[in-house]
Amino acid sequence: MKKEKFDWKNPSKKQWKQIHAWTRTIIQIFFFVMMPSIFTTAFSGVKYIFTRIGTGEAVSMTAFVTALAAICLYTIVFGRFFCGFACAFGSVGDWLHALYLWINKKAGKKKPWKPDRQLMKWLSYVKYAVLALIVILCFTGFYGKTSGWSPWDVFSMLRSGNLRLAAYIPGLILLILIFAGMFVEERFFCKVLCPMGAVFSLLPILPLYALFRDRQNCLKGCSACTRMCPADLELPERGSFHASGDCFQCQKCIDTCPKGNVRCGVKEVKGNELLFTLIRAIILFALMKLAGV
């Protein structure tokens, strides 16, 4: 796939779309195999900080805190590229949803069932409650007593082939529910429940590599990018500072826009999206290796 592309002088729009989709899948598989624990490690940083403050101990730069700081800095500069391309949990969700779409296609259903958009919008605030709840549990020292409940622990255990799940039945049930959600709704977990996503959403993402659109060039009444967006975002006007913390940087909108209006703040990137994606993936990988994940 990759080799062919360089032989073509001018891949068609559709072919570019395929190239980008495959590149994303390959990067996701790479991170899933090489670094499946970035999410849990970084979030352990959040838990660690509040547990320590709760017990009145100093917060030292442990491996968890370093990973948390590194991923937050990366996200401030590059947006939530990690979510779209490197998170093991998100990747599994994407594959589950792809399976859902494939089944629908085979069954001859043109429009697969989707949860109500307005409902999803309201539900997307739940993640802040999840974050607040975990932080409070850590601070008060109760988190240790909920060990069998974490669906992320169960996910990590399954991934590493650790199948002694007897003490993790509540977590396993939650995980199955989450996967069911991810199956019918693209990025259900990331939008609604992910506490790390809540942290990312609260970060001030620089308007450099975040995605914007030139609205005045849009076709009248067109909402192709919003309909394609897993987070249902209406991208901000280029030049503004309203980069949304809910954008996963999946970049599907770039190829979806019939007018090619979607691009990031730095204009040199336009047309070099593939190269830039690879560079970001390499920087992320190197950074996480340095941080000791």
């Binding site: 624990s37 490690t41 442990t62 491996a63 000791g292």
Partner: peptide, 10 residues
């Protein structure tokens, strides 16, 4: 071999 580095250092 199969422990995550960050967790092992903790």
């Amino acid at each position: 071999d199969n422990e995550d580095t960050a967790y092992l250092t903790m």
